[in-house]
């Protein structure tokens, strides 16, 4: 999926945080918030305005887990695999979702761009373990069955996340 370069929006985001190298992360977060990923068409322009190399932008973008250079699904499901969730069996939930969405560790987004499935190392909601989030909404005390049910509801548009 190629992204049409829109220098107006990108300049707005850059101006909001300031065109200096220290704003790199905030700007990339701004771009990602808008597009739910980082379209690579934006990189040359950001690099130029911030006076950094494109390679160093790419370097920052690939260092942090939250940045995605690939388009993400409409629903981003994150299964928490922090310690508390792990000892309360978060992996079977992940396995169930992966098999139902036909995804794997390498392939995290469905071809129709409706779902992205990821793990996260701790959401700090350990008291509710195991948890998963759908676009930042926390679903507590999950089981594989509850996860399947949630997925079904998302597919049918019964819940908005």
């Amino acid at each position: 999926m190629s992204h049409k370069f829109d220098s107006y929006t990108i300049d707005e985001i850059i101006d909001e945080f300031g065109a200096q190298p220290s704003s790199v992360i905030a700007i990339l977060q701004g771009v990602q918030e808008k597009h739910r990923y980082l379209p690579k068409e934006y990189f040359p322009h950001i690099a130029k305005r911030l006076g950094v190399s494109e390679a160093s932008l790419y370097s920052v973008a690939t260092f942090y887990e939250n940045f995605s250079l690939e388009p993400k699904g409409k629903y981003v499901l994150k299964v928490c695999d922090g310690t508390a969730c792990h000892v309360r069996k978060s992996i079977p939930i992940l396995d169930r979702l992966r098999s139902e969405l036909n995804l794997s560790e390498e392939k995290c987004t469905t071809d129709d761009l409706s779902f992205t499935l990821e793990t996260v190392s701790c959401l700090g909601a350990c008291g509710l373990a195991p948890v998963l989030t759908v676009n930042d909404k926390v679903y507590p005390a999950m089981t594989p069955d509850k996860a399947s049910e949630l997925l079904k509801q998302l597919k049918e548009g019964l819940v908005d996340a």
Binding site: V52, S53, E54, A55, S56, Y58, S59, L69
Partner: peptide
Amino acid sequence: NVGAIDFAHRGSKMTISCAF
């Protein structure tokens, strides 16, 4: 100050690479 290469990714997946 050429900026052709930099680190990319992190941890055991880290490489030295050009942008993208």
